[in-house]
């Protein structure tokens, strides 16, 4: 029964080997999508290149459907799968700042790692900035602790919040993703000037 690690099929060290392999796949697909290039990522925010949205929501939908079917077949114990805890205040404020940083910096943490190994100088400088920003956060932590813990709701899921069945929410997420993909194709035809390299 999955998750295999949680049911003791292997230990922490084997888990690290898996981490390396999962990471290789993660890095490979990020690079294949073109996410090593800051400009390609940033053009998302001018509706010229919608790759970020397409890749992200395709990935979310793929993994979500996988989890739902594996749960249905009884292959995975979904209660053993990590759910990010919700701190609504911290995550909305953090998300807004993160978005500004994304448009200004052109990368997010994972994509900047890919950019750096490709030889992109701006990705390396961005990573330096990220380490600095984390240092600042730690130094200011006493002042930020209230915001950091604001809006705590535990490991809340959308399904708990709306009191709706998982299948229905999953279906709506798929419909919303398809609508966004159609919008994205339309936007690229209208605003996209040249394929960003």
């Amino acid at each position: 029964m999955a998750p295999f690690f949680k049911f003791g099929y292997f230990g922490v060290e084997t888990g690290y080997v898996i981490a390396l392999l999962v990471g290789i796949s993660f890095g490979f697909w990020l690079e294949r999508a073109g996410f090593g290039e800051s400009r390609k990522l940033a053009l998302q925010f001018y509706f010229e290149d919608m790759t970020v949205l397409k890749v992200m929501f395709t990935a979310i939908v793929t993994a979500m459907i996988g989890l739902m079917y594996f749960t249905l077949f009884g292959w995975i114990d979904i209660s053993q799968v990590y759910v990010n805890p919700t701190y609504l205040g911290a995550q909305v404020v953090g998300g807004l700042i993160f978005g500004i940083g994304f448009a200004v910096g052109g990368y997010c943490p994972g994509t900047s790692v890919v950019g750096a190994v490709l030889g992109r100088i701006d990705a390396l400088v961005f990573l330096g900035g990220a380490l600095f920003g984390m240092f600042v956060f730690g130094e200011l932590f006493p002042l930020l602790e209230g915001l950091y813990n604001s809006g705590y709701m535990g490991a809340a899921k959308i399904t708990d919040w709306l009191k709706a069945p998982t299948g229905l929410i999953g279906f709506l997420v798929i419909i919303a993703a398809i609508a966004m993909f159609l919008g994205a194709e339309w936007a690229e035809n209208k605003f996209g000037k040249e394929p960003a390299k």
Binding site: V104, Y107, S112, V125, G128, G129, F132, M134, F135
Partner: peptide
């Protein structure tokens, strides 16, 4: 941008 991202992440 990197600093903002590091902080907000």
């Amino acid at each position: 941008g990197g600093s903002l991202i590091g902080f907000s992440a």
